[in-house]
Simulated scan of single mutants.
Amino acid sequence: MSDLTHLFTIGQPVRCRLDEKYYKGTVKETYPDHIIVDIPEISKHCWFENDFNMDCVYPEYNFQE
């Protein structure tokens, strides 16, 4: 299991895949086993956790527009 405090930083822009659509968000809190992301279109408190839904979060720099 990865320590998410080493992979994500507070304020980092990310995209989250929910219902087959990508939403822009910002990492608000980091913990060893989960992160909290503010996705304005969805919620200010989206929880992403190791071994559950962490594979739905991607750093913004992975995308080209």
Results as ranks from 00 to 15, higher is better:
57 V>N: 00
22 Y>A: 04
31 Y>F: 15
7 L>A: 13
25 G>K: 01
36 I>H: 00
46 C>I: 04
26 T>F: 08
50 N>R: 09
40 P>M: 03
15 R>M: 08
37 V>N: 00
14 V>T: 09
36 I>K: 02
54 M>Y: 05
26 T>M: 13
32 P>V: 14
64 Q>Y: 15
38 D>E: 12
6 H>P: 06
20 E>C: 02
21 K>R: 11
44 K>W: 07
31 Y>C: 07
28 K>Q: 10
58 Y>I: 13
34 H>M: 11
9 T>H: 13
16 C>L: 03
13 P>Y: 08
24 K>C: 06
38 D>K: 05
6 H>D: 14
43 S>H: 04
65 E>N: 14
35 I>Y: 00
47 W>S: 08
43 S>V: 06
64 Q>E: 15
21 K>F: 12
11 G>L: 10
54 M>S: 04
35 I>L: 09
62 N>R: 15
27 V>H: 04
39 I>Q: 02
29 E>S: 05
6 H>M: 13
33 D>P: 11
8 F>K: 00
21 K>N: 06
45 H>V: 09
9 T>S: 14
43 S>T: 11
56 C>P: 06
48 F>K: 00
9 T>Y: 11
56 C>D: 13
41 E>M: 07
49 E>C: 09
27 V>M: 11
42 I>N: 01
16 C>P: 00
8 F>H: 01
2 S>Q: 09
31 Y>H: 14
11 G>S: 11
12 Q>F: 09
3 D>E: 09
11 G>R: 10
17 R>G: 02
62 N>L: 15
12 Q>P: 06
64 Q>T: 15
55 D>L: 05
37 V>G: 01
51 D>W: 10
39 I>A: 03
27 V>P: 04
30 T>E: 14
1 M>F: 12
65 E>S: 13
62 N>G: 10
23 Y>F: 12
11 G>N: 09
25 G>S: 02
42 I>C: 02
54 M>A: 07
63 F>G: 10
26 T>Q: 14
1 M>V: 13
25 G>P: 00
8 F>V: 06
20 E>M: 05
49 E>A: 08
53 N>L: 05
63 F>Y: 13
62 N>Q: 15
43 S>K: 06
49 E>T: 05
54 M>T: 02
21 K>V: 09
2 S>Y: 03
53 N>D: 05
54 M>D: 07
39 I>V: 12
59 P>A: 12
47 W>I: 12
40 P>H: 03
59 P>G: 10
49 E>H: 09
4 L>I: 10
19 D>K: 02
10 I>V: 15
10 I>M: 07
13 P>V: 05
61 Y>A: 15
56 C>A: 12
5 T>G: 11
38 D>L: 05
7 L>G: 10
6 H>W: 12
7 L>C: 14
24 K>S: 11
36 I>F: 03
17 R>H: 08
24 K>M: 08
2 S>I: 06
48 F>A: 01
39 I>D: 01
35 I>F: 00
15 R>C: 03
28 K>C: 01
32 P>L: 13
